[in-house]
Design a binder for these strands. Structure first.
Lengths: 228, 228, 228, 228
DNA sequence: TATGAATGAGGTTTCATTCAT
DNA sequence: CATGAATGAAACCTCATTCAT
């Protein structure tokens, strides 16, 4: 007997989502390549220290030890170098290099591993995630980038949920995309709070507890039963 | 037999969380009161249209039909009037006027009503919530405001969860605060996506579906069983 | 045998030199009198604390506990209230209440007493003298006031010198006005340094030493021989 | 037989006293040097015409035919360019290029020459001395500059006086520093009156008479006898 | 007389961007 | 490809002064 369940359409996600109008060809000469790299590295540092708004282009060129004119050889402005900075986090956040779990492994294990991988990737790129959060509130271009990124995570999970539903391993009453939106957002928000926003005056919980709780709630929410 | 469960400490939340250093005494004369109110109303309008950063004080004073000098009679700057603008949303978001549900009502009903009330309040103040999200990324003062607001919602839910745990009506394995952080964040993120960020090119789901999914997942996640 | 010597013309000095265009009639009612007095007192305090330029009229009205509007009932602006403040020092500086020395007393004694009286008066009004120095550099009106004040002192001394010359008790080779300009300026500058400008990192001399040195040099300079 | 007399400690006077925190490195490129020089020249002109307070930076940049932004490439503000303007007068006032008088010349001649040189230097820089007087009343930084300048003159004279005392050529009863303070202040005040403040409605004396009187009184005051 | 809210002109300062070298 | 001096628009904020109450 067939389990109808929901279907999740594949989303066309460009290979690199940051590669928007804001990203141009790399320079051709080695010298140019070096200078550009120095600028991007400097920018990442400075953005991290001063935040997006408070960073002046002169801060970046100073940190990169080059002149202000040189900056414009490679970037049209702050937006563009910020996009370049974000790009380095892109690959990592999109393909967090999950420890290969057997495809037929216990679904609960897969979800646990996936969540853990997400948190690890978030941790590695916490500074940039914080910046993205900041800039997304300011510049629609980067709001789109954030959404694309979130959707990539969300749709992957949605497909996974739909798959479990079809195999009768998850609550079939919920729309997999909606459910994934909710649960992926839950995880993403937890990571943001943990690594970026902080807990204010409250006692910060242990990261493992956060991850375990997230995973447990995720499994419960979808009626996914750990194997055994 | 006693059900130990977790305990959630009461949090001291100031009566109005926006009343920070950024809020001063109201003017004493009726005329002053009127002028100040006109400025706040104008500011809300302008902030909504142009966003926080792109709003110049002159935009506000023009909209309020007063001189630039008058502005400074009531506010020290953009931050301060923004705090005043946010304050009007404060009360509503904190006490969303839930339809009184009997205390001994079905827990599932309570949670459903609470989530619905949250979404409704969010909708009513969507413009300000969007602004707050923007400004919290820029100004730590407002990051704190956002956190306080989120925590108020989160701790209320944590108490509710702990209560259910103690009554044996909810999964006793999860820390109620952590669980509440996760689930409250989930709901808050859904509302933000729905009312502020939007769904990009994806088809926006119906609000009711979002709320129902959120509630269903919430209940599942905590093993709360609808009565009957 | 007649001693020709120099003659010093009497100068027309208005009774109160501060009573320029900047001074108006006093208010007629007791209440007005009180308010005005409070403003002047407050102004003296505030000018002393913040200096002329950094004093805002609102500082004065606040200190006087009256409204900004009231200020303009009594004064046309900062200049005018400053003139009113200076006036209180005027009388004292012009007629320093010298300990009556017999007219036929030892000229050296007279000069010593006069110098001492000058320093004493300067000390009593040091704050205002400092302010006058400041404002005279800014506002020609008060430069004139300062010059009038200095001239009054200078001409009195010039007459005294001329008198001694005529009596053969002082060097007849110098023009009494020029000599008085030089010596009066010397004394005035010493007082300014001692009471207002200070000595920087140098060790401040004892006031008595300053006065004694001034007097000794004055006497020597004019070949005035102490009696006996 | 030894004549003890007073001793005057050498003062450590920095080579250029205006080179305070307000003076930065000169620009390195010729173009920068030219622009900076144009600004300083323009500033001297404008300060002289309008006074310190009434000079707007835009007055200076207009006079220098450069943009407002350029100004800030070289100076942090009005204070800083004023310090640069004052510096040009510094050298001249400190080392007024006295006509070399033989060291063993008649002390009276030396003093006469020294005073004359002082007046000449004052005349050459009268505009800046007037400005300094004005600004010293406003800005403690420049009050210090004025004091340093005065002290340099004063201490040089004090050493000279002490030297004469030791050689038995001057009144040994007075403290040389105090005496120098008095007499140097006398001369400085006379120069200020003559070249900057003016004599009001009084008839201005001839400069030579002022200088001669000053010198005569100086010599008398210290019992220095002209040779011959 | 007293009040204090409203006014608005105007100088300062920043910093992204250009372009001659 | 690199430099860095020059540009100038744009927004903030102060505070003396007025005037309706």
């Amino acid at each position: 007997m067939e389990t109808p369940g929901f279907e999740v359409e594949e989303q066309d996600v460009p290979p690199s989502m940051a590669r928007s109008s804001l990203l141009r060809e790399l320079p051709s000469t080695p010298r140019g390549l070096r200078t550009r790299a120095a600028l991007v590295a400097a920018a990442r540092r400075v953005f991290g220290q001063r935040g997006y708004l408070d960073t002046r282009l002169s801060d970046i060129t100073e940190a990169a030890k080059c002149s202000s004119g040189t900056f414009y050889t490679y970037f049209a402005g702050k937006e563009e170098i910020f996009a370049a900075v974000m790009e380095v986090a892109q690959e990592d956040m999109m393909h967090p290099g999950m420890p290969r779990v057997a495809d037929d492994a216990d679904p609960a294990e897969i979800i646990a591993a996936s969540n853990r991988a997400y948190f690890e990737a978030y941790r590695r790129n916490a500074d940039l995630m914080g910046l993205l959060e900041q800039v997304a509130g300011i510049d629609p271009e980067f709001a789109k980038l954030r959404r694309n990124r979130a959707d990539a995570f969300m749709f992957r999970n949605a497909r996974s949920i739909a798959n479990l539903q079809q195999r009768g391993l998850a609550d079939q009453e919920v729309d997999p995309v909606l459910a994934s939106r909710a649960l992926s957002g839950m995880v993403s928000r937890l990571a943001f709070t943990h690594f970026v926003a902080g807990y204010g005056d409250s006692e910060p919980p242990a990261l493992d507890d956060v991850i375990d709780t997230a995973t447990r709630l995720w499994l419960n929410a979808l009626h996914i039963r750990p194997a055994g």
